[in-house]
Lab assay of single mutants.
Amino acid sequence: MAAGGDHGSPDSYRSPLASRYASPEMCFVFSDRYKFRTWRQLWLWLAEAEQTLGLPITDEQIQEMKSNLENIDFKMAAEEEKRLRHDVMAHVHTFGHCCPKAAGIIHLGATSCYVGDNTDLIILRNALDLLLPKLARVISRLADFAKERASLPTLGFTHFQPAQLTTVGKRCCLWIQDLCMDLQNLKRVRDDLRFRGVKGTTGTQASFLQLFEGDDHKVEQLDKMVTEKAGFKRAFIITGQTYTRKVDIEVLSVLASLGASVHKICTDIRLLANLKEMEEPFEKQQIGSSAMPYKRNPMRSERCCSLARHLMTLVMDPLQTASVQWFERTLDDSANRRICLAEAFLTADTILNTLQNISEGLVVYPKVIERRIRQELPFMATENIIMAMVKAGGSRQDCHEKIRVLSQQAASVVKQEGGDNDLIERIQVDAYFSPIHSQLDHLLDPSSFTGRASQQVQRFLEEEVYPLLKPYESVMKVKAELCL
């Protein structure tokens, strides 16, 4: 049975990233139509530049190519590739079939990587351009969430054990800070992308030097003109047959890092959902379990974690691919890159769409948070109580021993009897502590235990987050809708 299948058929496997999760716009960027249309555009740009620099290419040939950029006979191309065992030459023939007058000058002087690699770089750039505003929107939604809850005390956790208090907004800023680093890295790697350009079979530009009869300047002009037509500021000066596969490492490393950030955020949300302090959106008709109707599973956060793990592992592909590119190139890269580049971007696209949807509907339960604080705060307040007693004339050592005994009794009630923490009640009825009984409410005010959390939130948002989001103001209103 021949390899390949009808990918629109229910009898043929289709990647869930495309069929179930990723956005239509990201799927289109990695589609065959987008790819092969870009090949034709690159052939047109090459012909236009070659004509401008004096090669015998007519206006009629150029116009014929322009008129057929979208006229792609995919069936013919597939048949040609089956016959020739070469995808680029299959599309040269297919393009030439609908451009008979231009057929002889299509791909003039070029090698397969002229269309293959340059198209990949265009796709990487455009895919990054799709991700950047999506990530900015996630940051914006979380920034709104953090600002609104900047002063809401909550129990902090280290080692997932109760620690000092923080605020809900401050905790959210930990998430935002990681995503801001990801946004900066995505922008950097996007701006650092260079075009492969017009380089020939081993990167020496020998074929173009021959076409222009040894004119170095025209060869350099050709490279520059096509690079500018493709919208790049610069091209690699040095290439082998391909652009260095280190570029793929750079791009997928940034995406993998984004995956790590999203995994951490969504894990926190899942843990908070278990504590009943916070939940992701839950639709009115949504079913959490087929057997347990009360369940409210954090399905979206779980999906993000599941896909983020996949995204983090994909960076190993370009690392290994770059390491086995012998001399000017081997074909070890080809099949692998067809999979890992598309999957990385479709996965990143999915987790950003999902995280935006989550961040637009996060639900906080202040009463649950308050109750958990009441359970733990008495123990945390013991040092403040000791200091207040010393100020009232008591002995630190005597007070410490009193607190120690009462704390152990209260802990026994919590752990052995399943009761509430009654340390404060014990202190309130103990005559030894009568000098500070009137101060206990103040000493137990949760806001006095959150330090500068709310001020940190305000400063972080104003100095770091809002300036970073400013270039994306025009796209901030787009909502994230999930079908599944």
Rank of each mutant, 00 (worst) to 15 (best):
C180I: 14
A453H: 05
V315L: 12
S112W: 00
A308K: 02
E417S: 10
P24S: 13
H91A: 14
L84C: 06
R329F: 05
I57H: 09
P293S: 07
F236H: 12
F236P: 00
F145K: 05
E48W: 01
S447A: 12
I358K: 08
V88M: 12
L440R: 04
T202H: 05
S454Y: 12
T313Y: 07
L406Q: 07
M299L: 03
L211C: 10
A453E: 03
L131M: 12
L84W: 13
P133F: 13
L444N: 01
D73E: 08
L152R: 04
T267A: 10
K295L: 01
S323V: 03
Q177G: 13
S474T: 15
S448C: 15
I62N: 07
L311K: 02
V465F: 04
S289G: 01
W45F: 13
A103W: 08
E80V: 08
T52L: 09
I57S: 03
S257M: 08
A127C: 08
L423E: 05
N274V: 08
P435H: 08
K82V: 15
D73W: 08
T52V: 10
R234Y: 13
V115P: 15
E463A: 10
I373H: 05
N71T: 09
T158M: 01
A453P: 05
A291M: 02
T244S: 15
A322W: 12
A77K: 05
N297A: 01
N336I: 12
H310M: 08
G197S: 11
M387H: 05
S112F: 02
T350K: 06
L331N: 05
P153L: 01
L55N: 07
Y21F: 13
S9Y: 15
A411G: 14
K264R: 13
L165K: 02
V189C: 15
D349L: 03
R234E: 15
F460L: 07
V368S: 04
L142Y: 07
D422K: 10
K402T: 05
L311I: 12
E80W: 06
V198F: 02
A480C: 15
H437M: 05
Q285H: 11
K264S: 05
E302S: 03
E213A: 12
R149N: 09
V168M: 07
T52P: 08
R329V: 02
R396H: 03
E280A: 03
E280S: 01
S407C: 09
R309N: 07
M65G: 05
Q205T: 06
H107T: 02
I249L: 10
D59A: 11
G4H: 15
D120H: 08
F28G: 07
S257G: 11
K264T: 02
Q205I: 04
K134W: 11
D182K: 00
L124D: 11
V254K: 12
P378F: 03
G231P: 04
I176E: 07
Q397C: 05
P446A: 07
F30T: 06
D216C: 07
L132I: 13
V262T: 15
L46V: 06
C172V: 11
I237L: 11
R40S: 01
Q458M: 14
D268E: 13
I176Y: 03
L46W: 00
Q177W: 12
G288I: 05
D349H: 07
Q409G: 09
E70H: 12
A344E: 02
Q408D: 10
M389W: 02
A77D: 15
E70F: 14
P10R: 14
K147R: 10
H400K: 02
K199G: 09
E79C: 11
E417H: 09
R245A: 00
S323W: 00
P281G: 08
A90N: 06
L307T: 15
S207Y: 03
V457C: 08
R404I: 03
E220C: 12
G203Y: 00
K35R: 13
T166L: 09
P100H: 15
F28C: 06
L193D: 01
T202E: 03
R309A: 05
E473I: 14
S15K: 05
G8H: 15
T354M: 14
W45R: 04
C113R: 00
A78F: 09
P153C: 13
L46N: 07
R171A: 01
P318I: 01
R125Y: 07
P133A: 14
Q409F: 06
R234W: 08
D430P: 05
N297D: 02
R296L: 08
G419A: 09
S438A: 14
T350V: 14
L128R: 01
G156W: 00
H263V: 06
I249N: 06
C340L: 11
I105A: 13
A388H: 04
L131Y: 06
R338A: 03
E228K: 14
P318Y: 00
Q164V: 12
T158R: 00
T154M: 12
G156N: 02
K246G: 03
M387Q: 13
A3N: 15
P471I: 15
D332P: 03
V251W: 07
L272P: 04
F28P: 01
R404K: 14
L314A: 10
L124C: 12
L209S: 11
A2C: 15
K246W: 04
R300V: 15
F232A: 01
Q409M: 10
E25V: 10
D11K: 12
L44C: 12
Q51I: 07
N421Q: 06
H93E: 12
E401M: 07
K470W: 12
S301I: 13
A392F: 06
S112D: 00
S67P: 09
Y466D: 13
A3T: 08
E283T: 15
W39C: 15
S447V: 15
L128T: 10
